[in-house]
Design a protein around this nucleic acid. Structure first.
Lengths: 194, 194
DNA sequence: GTCTATAATTCGATAGAC
DNA sequence: GTCTATCGAATTATAGAC
């Protein structure tokens, strides 16, 4: 979506993204966006067809990025424990690069409308299922402890999904590599066999 | 807030809570609420002064419950590792009893308005700080591994905050006690010393 | 407690000139 | 691309009768 064809266009999507993050999608009006960019309401429609299309662009863009990374990992010949490490790594990398999109992904997906809402939910579910499959394989091969699969999968997802906060407003001195180390430590020593 | 003075009043707050959960607070209109209860818009104001007061009631009610439980734990003479177990336990108990309030707590707190919004943020921060203090004490006493304190605290909070999903629409066969066992296992084997 | 009616405002989106 | 002007719809909330 946010193809940087021109500086002005890029600026529009960057500032709008931050604004929607700050106020929430529903609470952000077209006038708010125009004010932020120092022009009038009508000009917003030079960049986007509708308010709804704006939200869809941000959310599906980053969702696709997560899926692409996950698919590469799934299709590799790494063992399940190594695949889990890579999932954590890729999630943190994408989040640290695009914390505001990730925030929208978490905070405002409910404001999508059908049929895009269902598309989002299905896609998110597919991602979770892929992670679950990795964990299941790791259990089968004795690398991971036997725990409830759904609970474990969702707990790991939950441990990853809040991380955007670290990268909005410099709230941490932890760089992505160190976050990856710490979080992997936390998750693995909690999940591996013995 | 939701004191069950009468069946009708209780029904109003229960159905409204579920409706707001389903649609999101901003997207739920006064008319939606009236429709759900089979009466007209104006009647909503028989139960509540404003739409905003409705949101505040639900959110601060459950937030207070979390704080009360946390304070009892903090004030006890249990050791830090036992205190952490009790925090997890109390969080799951409250969540399982009131999953829809917890969902609002997570999904719609951004729709609070000042000064209540800041009050919410401060209160949430205070809860996190109390948990952090418990973990810090556990590290000092050698019960927990040395990890980044903020990251660990937030990861544990994240692991607890999604659990309401399990109790909405019977999406699991795990009862709260088993969830507590599984999640405590996951968190502890990831955090304790050796 | 329930209704009808309506005030007062806000919002997304479009038309058309420059 | 930017502006003025405006439409039409939706929304919160209140007034007042039954």
């Amino acid at each position: 979506m946010q193809m940087r064809k021109s500086n002005k266009r890029a600026l529009f999507f960057e500032e709008t993204l931050k604004l929607i993050y700050e106020k929430g999608f529903k609470a952000t009006t077209i006038r708010d966006i125009a004010d932020r960019l120092n022009f009038k309401e009508a000009n917003v429609y030079n960049y986007v067809d509708s308010k709804q299309a704006l939200l869809e662009g941000y959310i599906f863009d980053i969702q696709n990025e997560f899926h692409t990374a996950m698919n590469h990992i799934i299709d590799s010949t790494y063992l399940p424990n190594e695949k889990l490490r890579l999932v954590i790594s890729s999630y943190i990398q994408i989040t640290s690069k695009r914390p505001y999109e990730q925030a929208l992904f978490m905070n405002d997906w409910r404001n999508l409308k059908e049929p895009r809402l269902q598309e989002f939910i299905n896609s998110r579910k597919a991602y979770e299922e892929k992670l679950k499959t990795i964990i299941e394989a790791g259990v089968s091969q004795g690398q991971f402890r036997v725990l409830n699969l759904t609970l474990t999968t969702q707990t790991i997802m939950a441990a990853l999904r809040w991380l955007y906060i670290l990268y909005i407003g410099q709230k941490t001195n932890l760089n992505p590599i160190e976050v990856e180390k710490q979080l992997t430590d936390f998750i693995f020593t909690g999940i591996h066999n013995e």
